[in-house]
Structures are given as C-alpha cells and as structure tokens.
C-alpha cells in the first residue's frame, strides 16, 4: 500500500529529502526535470545519507565516496559500493508524494541495522 511521505513543495529540484519516519530511512529525490524518485537513504557501502548526495543525470552520488546509484532502479555504478540499494515506487497525486515501499530486504552497510 502507498505511503504519503511528503508534499512536492517540500522538495527542491536537484536535491534529495531524507525521510526517517520509515525504517530504514528513505530518500525522495526531485530531479531538475521534475521527476520524483525514491531510494533507501543509506549507502550500501558506509553509513551516509544519499539524500545529501549530488543529483545529476538521474543518478545520485553518495556524498562520502564516488559510487552513484540510479534513481529509478537503485543500481550502483562503481566501487567502493558494490551492492545496489532498494528503489521504491514513487508517484505524485494532488501535490503529495506517495511511495510504495519495496518488499525486498534492505541492503545496509556494515554496522547499520534496522531497529
């Protein structure tokens, strides 16, 4: 079932927003083209918030290292992260952002656990 996570007005084009009301936290991205995407917020390599990463060409670069993740699929492109992160289906209805959370197992870095 879809979860309302934020309003479109909460988002800034070219940036991500960390939502820690869900566990593990997710990151909602609004691209410069106006598309909304959602990934797990935590990089699979080390504990860092992808919402703080650099968004460009439908990918987000982890703020700590050089790995980037595709916003639609969560697929990683290069080390040091080796595992993709989960992508969640996101859609905008009447200015509100709804997310269908993935049922796959989260892919978290060493030392980070879902409480």
């Amino acid at each position: 079932m879809s979860l309302r996570v934020c309003s479109i007005d909460d988002l800034t084009p070219g940036e991500g927003l960390r939502i820690d009301a869900v566990s593990p936290p997710i990151a909602v991205f609004l691209t410069e083209d106006g598309e909304v995407y959602c990934l797990d917020d935590t990089c699979s390599h080390q504990d860092a918030s992808l919402a703080s990463g650099w968004v460009e060409d439908c990918r987000v670069e982890c703020p700590l290292h050089e790995s980037t993740f595709h916003l639609a699929t969560g697929q990683v492109d290069q080390p040091p992260a080796k595992r993709s992160v989960r992508a969640h289906q996101a859609q905008v209805l009447d200015g509100e952002v709804y997310v269908e959370l993935s049922t796959a197992e989260p892919v978290l870095p060493p030392g980070v656990r879902v409480p």
């Binding site: 936290p25 080390q46 918030s49 703020p63 700590l64």
Partner: peptide, 19 residues
C-alpha cells in the same frame, strides 16, 4: 576521516553521521 561539506559549507556527510 571523510567529513564532507556541501559547496555551500554545511556538513552533509561523515561516516556514521546519521547515527
């Protein structure tokens, strides 16, 4: 230790910063 700052100056990431 990879403390990471946005171009705008704020601390955006560091290992285990979310904790």
């Amino acid at each position: 230790h990879a403390w990471t700052y946005a171009l705008e100056g704020e601390l955006v990431a560091a290992p285990n910063l979310t904790a």
